[in-house]
Structures are given as C-alpha cells and as structure tokens.
C-alpha cells in the first residue's frame, strides 16, 4: 500500500538509488537565470527505468526548468545530467518531450505533426507515415490523420503531441504539464489512457504537474520541490495498487487520500511561509 516517508530525503534517496536501474541521473544541478534569479540549487535526483516520476511543486519551484534541462533545451549553470550513463549536452533521440501548449505545427496535418520527430531523424516518408498512423491509432485519433490542429479540441491536440513523442521510440518521455490546458473531464480519461499506453510501451516518464491529485494518481514516485530556489524537499512513493480497481475506487481509497493530504500539508507550509514574507 501507500508508502509515505515523513522526512526522508536521505533514506529515500538511497532507496531509489539502490535499484541501480536508473536511466536518468541528475547531479548537482543549479540554474541561475540572467538577472540573478536562482531557479534551482544543487538538485540531485535519479529516475528509475520504466517508472513514472512526477516533479511536483508550487509555481516558481523550477520544475519545468529542471525538465527542460534534462531535455537538453536549457543549459544548467552547474551540474550534469546523465541518460543511460552518458552525459547530456543537448536534445537527443533517447528523450522525447511533450509540451504544455502542445507545440503542434499549425500548418501541418495530424499525420505530418506526428511524423515530425521521425522526419527530423531522416526517416523516409513511407516508414514515417506507417509509424505515425499506428501511433495515431494508439492514442485514439484514427480518422483524424488529415485534420489540422485548429480543428481539434485541446485534449485531441495533446494526443497528437503524445503520439509524436511516442513515435520516435525514445526511452524517456518528458512531459511538461501535459494536461494543464485540457479540461478536467478529458484530463481524467487521458490519465487513464496514458497509464495504459505507458504500461504497453514500457517507457520511463518524467512528468511535471502542479496538480497533487494527478501526481498521486499517475506516479510511481513523486519528487516534491521547494520554491525559489528549487530544491528537493522530499520524495514520496504513492504505491497505488491498481489491479482490478476502477479509477473511482482508487481515488476513494484511504491510501490515495492520505497521500494527497500529506503532500498538501507540505505545500501549504510553503504558502504560509510566502505569506509571512
């Protein structure tokens, strides 16, 4: 059942590290923006292979910054990111990014958008289209191949973004608040589908969100970041058993609710501190 470790930065860390199957390793990451804002300070983290890790924290804790550093889209001021043991110096084919605002090409069809990553890798057109079509079907958009992004709803657009990321067969999926621009009903359905898809594809996922419930519901491991400058506060393992339960049953379980409550207590403290300042 739920494992919540109260003040465990140290022990919890070693636990995750012990698994020795971490695919992404972050050590000593500090990020200072021009102008002197310190977004992250001394962040060490390990992401176990095949698991879903969530970066959770209040606005301004640098969670998106950390994700973009892992993606190679931003350079860290200090520290290194290793993927499969190799140091990262930019974007690479073993990582794929899912954007908060979808980042779809508005002038291209769903098919072209999903195939964009493959096109950049120089995959020939026929293979590209075949692969794109199969992922379009997997995310439930069969029949929309020739539609343009502006003809789709927010939820459908993000499915395109997800299919595009899956199509390049990266080991690590980096998702930046993927559901924040999607309405609540769609979001819940989407979370289910995401879990199902990931179970099939066996991906490592790093997921940024500010929704506590979402984090607890989808993650194997939750990293709580403290605000400005972002540091790791604690790591929570929700350990939710899904077998044979409906989503609603899971959301009603005491274990689920306790974890949500526990994380909320921590985040509330930040807000109180902020108010006092």
């Amino acid at each position: 059942m739920t494992t919540v470790i109260a003040s465990p930065t140290q022990e919890e860390h070693s636990r995750v590290n012990d698994t020795a199957q971490e695919i992404v390793e972050v050590s000593g990451i500090t990020k200072v923006y021009p102008g002197g804002t310190v977004a992250l300070r001394g962040v060490d983290l390990a992401f176990p292979k095949g698991k879903m890790t969530t970066l959770l924290g209040p606005s301004g804790c640098g969670k998106t910054t950390l994700l973009k550093i892992i993606a190679g889209l931003l350079d860290a001021t200090e520290g290194v990111v290793r993927v499969n043991g190799k140091e990262v110096s930019g974007p690479g084919p073993e990582r794929a990014f899912v954007f908060q605002d979808f980042a779809l090409l508005p002038w291209a069809t769903v098919l072209t958008n999903v195939g964009f990553g493959l096109e950049m890798q120089g995959v020939d057109k026929a293979t590209r289209e075949a692969k794109s079509r199969s992922y379009i079907t997997k995310v439930g958009l069969a029949g929309f191949e020739d539609n343009y992004p502006h003809e789709l709803s927010g939820g459908m657009r993000q499915r395109v973004g997800l299919a595009r990321a899956l199509a390049v067969s990266a080991d690590v999926l980096l998702m930046d608040e993927p559901f924040s621009a999607v309405d609540e009903q769609t979001r819940r359905l989407f979370q289910e589908e995401l879990l199902r898809l990931l179970a099939m594809e066996n991906k490592t996922v790093i997921f940024v969100t500010h929704s506590i419930e979402e984090a607890v519901y989808v993650s194997d491991q939750i990293v709580l970041l403290s605000p400005r400058p972002g540091r790791i506060n604690r790591v929570v393992i929700p350990g939710i058993e899904r077998d044979g339960k409906t989503p609603d049953e899971i959301r009603r379980e005491p274990g689920f609710l306790d974890t949500v409550e526990d994380i909320w207590d921590t985040l509330k403290k930040y807000l109180d501190e902020e108010r006092m300042v």
Binding site: K68, A71, G72, L73, G90, P91, G92, P93, R95, A96, F97, F99, Q100, D101, A103, L105, F116, G117, M120, Q121, V168
Partner: peptide, 15 residues
C-alpha cells in the same frame, strides 16, 4: 514565433 515551437523542433533534433 512561439518559443515552444522552437524548443519542440530542437528537442527532436532538427538541424
């Protein structure tokens, strides 16, 4: 141009 479109292309290794 949206910065995320730019980042998207970079993240997929666009030349």
């Amino acid at each position: 141009i949206s910065p995320s479109l730019n980042e998207m292309a970079r993240s997929f290794g666009a030349s």
